[in-house]
Simulated assay, not measured.
Amino acid sequence: MVDDSAPGLAMDDDAFFQYLKLFMDYVPLWVLLLGAGVIWLIRHPDTLSALSRDVESAKIGEFEIKLRQVEEQLETTQAHVDELEAENLRLSSFYNRFDAHAGPDVLRDVRQQAHHAARGLNDLAPVREGLKPGASAEDIFVAAEMLRERRDISSFDALIDCVARIAAHPTLEGLRYQTVWSLASAVHKTVLSDVSHNTVPELSADQLKRARHVMETLIGNPHVARDRPDAPEAGIRGPAQFALNWIEKGLKAWERAK
């Protein structure tokens, strides 16, 4: 007769023991050790910091922990964030110091400062923020002037999006002609720089075709027609037409490259 009260049989019949046994059978020991190690390191951050300095990598089972690599990536990311914050602060100083509706002398000074600052920017993402819907007139003016200086291909789509939005508005979103002139000039200078320095433009044919449509829309805006009717080339239509001329050259370059 078997004694059912024996400890071994009681454990065999115990549901918790059966689940624990099943878990242990299917989960490798190294996974359990890794989990325990991670928990221990979390509770001892000083040890983790020292370990990351002294050990480049650790391999446990099928996983390899690149400690120094992770630490360096975090430091690089933080450095990039710090740079963006500094550049945002630098740009905001322009917006706080002038009125986009001020006289020509004020705008001339701001333009010169914007050009100077643009040369030192490592990342133009903050500049592109000034082209988005809802940006103030000051944001747009400074962004346009900085892109006139930098002629940045990676900012071209954002620039065209901004011009397209403004060109479609009956009163150019209330912006003064000088600001829209700066935007059109930024398009002109960017396309000119790209097409004149490359056998095949960096700007794609699709980008150039869209830019052509946007600049034609801008020129056709009735409000734009009232800017310097005595000398259209001195107003918005001047850089807009210059941009169209270089866009056509760029499209011809793409045709030749086929």
Rank of each mutant, 00 (worst) to 15 (best):
N88P: 03
L218A: 00
F141S: 05
L208I: 00
P222K: 03
A137M: 07
A143G: 08
S5K: 11
E87T: 13
E129F: 06
R228T: 06
L183V: 14
N88D: 11
V224L: 07
D230K: 12
R148I: 15
E87L: 03
M24H: 07
R228V: 03
G61N: 02
A86P: 10
I39F: 13
V38N: 06
V191T: 02
R226Q: 10
G35N: 02
V127R: 06
S196F: 01
S196Y: 02
P45E: 06
M1A: 11
M24S: 03
F94I: 03
V106S: 14
H197M: 13
I140N: 03
E64V: 14
L183Q: 12
A117E: 09
R68Y: 06
D123V: 04
E71T: 14
E83D: 07
L124V: 01
Y19W: 11
P201M: 01
L67F: 10
T199I: 11
L91P: 02
F242G: 01
V127M: 05
P170D: 09
N96Q: 15
E64K: 09
R176K: 14
A15W: 05
L172I: 05
H223F: 14
L29A: 10
S136F: 00
D14Y: 08
I42W: 14
E129A: 05
R43K: 15
L251S: 07
R97C: 07
H223K: 10
S182E: 11
K189A: 14
A186E: 13
Q78N: 07
D157C: 08
